[in-house]
Design a protein around this nucleic acid. Structure first.
Lengths: 140, 140
DNA sequence: TCGAACCCTCACATCAATGTGAAGGTCTAC
DNA sequence: GTAGACCTTCACATTGATGTGAGGGTTCGA
């Protein structure tokens, strides 16, 4: 498929696809006219890249870890340099911490929303609003 | 405490602290000389902001959700506009998806690392490396 | 054969999160 | 009272992920 289709199927701008290629995150063969040519797998690949990017990893890191994540359980240790293993371990850590933080804050938001919904349910439309509500007390 | 101490205690540059303040993420009172003056709670606050930032939320959003996350279970619904609730719900979703992606990829990396370690354990130093290993087959 | 809809590269613009440094005030200790 | 270590604001630089547009080729259908 050409870049336009890939862009549409991954909800990613052409510009970004070219950028990802430039960063070595995806590869494309070229037709005789110079047009990029992608295979089916590129769709998943792009989606994964976007996921990692959205998860906060920089392209530099994604490029390093991507080969280890190839879906068809390809175990190819040969080019796993110790340096790269170190990067992976580090990033694993960082991701875990990031996810924890994310979930912690997410739960806090969810809790808040629940409380708000309960409040709204108990006090349907038109109920007078207290101009300024309970202020906090204890620290940290 | 003054900005220097806060910077040290949160491992955040002074510049960034001023930036967060500019973005409305933290507040500081001022001494008679114009120096910023932070209370104990600022430390946690900054750490939380950094966490959210690291989790991928832009300052714009953090500013909106931060008041709902105040630790001492402060329930103050009055200023929870419907618009803000919507933002929260949206962000909640986004965070959940982000966390999922993060964990999915983290697990994939962990799995890979485990496999590598097993491989290394079975084949201690000096074992000949196959120049190029198994390539994948199935698609997607 | 013309126009629309693709594609290419190149390059500059933008935005958020940061760094860095200049020019200057304040506080403290010697 | 002066040096050093703080602080202030202002402003420009940078980096990574993107947008946008110019200038130009290709493909295809009317």
């Amino acid at each position: 498929m050409r870049i336009g289709e890939l862009a549409e199927r991954t909800a990613t701008s052409r510009r970004l696809l070219r950028y990802y290629e430039e960063q070595g995150l995806i590869i494309a063969s070229r037709g005789p006219n110079g047009y990029r040519d992608y295979d089916e797998a590129a769709v998943d690949r792009v989606i994964q890249v976007r996921g990692l990017l959205d998860a906060g990893l920089p392209t530099r890191i994604i490029k390093q870890i991507l080969p280890c994540l190839d879906k068809p359980r390809t175990i190819y240790f040969p080019d796993a340099t110790p340096e790269m293993i170190a990067t992976l371990e580090e990033e694993l850590d960082r991701m875990t911490r990031r996810a924890e933080c994310l979930l912690r804050n997410r739960d806090a938001i969810a809790e808040y929303l629940d409380a708000v919904r309960e409040y709204d349910a108990a006090r349907p439309a038109g109920t007078p609003q207290p101009s300024s509500a309970s202020r906090h007390a204890s620290s940290s």
